[in-house]
């Protein structure tokens, strides 16, 4: 597992355990499973294979869909802050290409973390934010080749924007 992802999972897990212990003391049910779906650049950074192939630069905001209790959500955001990241509250607005696949990165009884597959993360970037990601997509086309080109075109992206 990627070192950053390992820290993230371990620290969130610890926070959720404490929250559950407190709830147990108060006679409440345990929190439901917290599910994190990583999107955007962060999903690429935690993927060791992509990280070794692409020269990635990332601002410290994390795009992710969070499906969990409000207190777990706060705990996740606190852990991210502690690791030098900030959760992007606009994550729900991120466009996910149809039929996108996700890779399971971590799973326990409290927490499940998955990341959008690199190809779909790149397509989302190429279609919705081509200017910001043009150098990344240029590199990625050289690596992923025809499947990426096809997927960008199928989703209404303009390949010519990356050939300047």
């Amino acid at each position: 597992m990627n070192e950053l992802l390992g820290k993230l999972a371990q620290q969130i897990e610890a926070k959720l355990t404490v929250l559950n212990q407190e709830r147990l003391k108060d006679g409440l049910l345990s929190l439901s499973l917290a599910e994190i779906s990583l999107l955007g650049q962060f999903s690429l950074i935690v993927n060791p294979e992509v990280n070794s192939k692409l020269q990635l630069a990332n601002t410290v905001d994390v795009d992710a869909l969070l499906k969990c209790d409000w207190s777990a959500r706060t705990a996740i955001k606190e852990v991210l802050l502690g690791l030098g990241f900030v959760y992007d509250e606009h994550s729900e607005e991120i466009w996910i290409p149809p039929n996108s696949k996700f890779i399971l990165l971590y799973e326990s009884s409290n927490l499940r973390i998955e990341a959008i597959e690199p190809l779909f993360a790149l397509v989302s970037k190429a279609v919705k934010a081509p200017h910001k990601n043009r150098f990344l997509i240029q590199q990625a086309i050289g690596i992923y080749g025809s499947p990426l080109i096809r997927c960008i075109r199928q989703n209404g992206g303009n390949i010519n924007l990356f050939l300047k």
Binding site: Q138, G142, F162, L163
Partner: peptide
Amino acid sequence: IIDKAKEL
């Protein structure tokens, strides 16, 4: 396209 992208 791939060749051009690699060049860039």
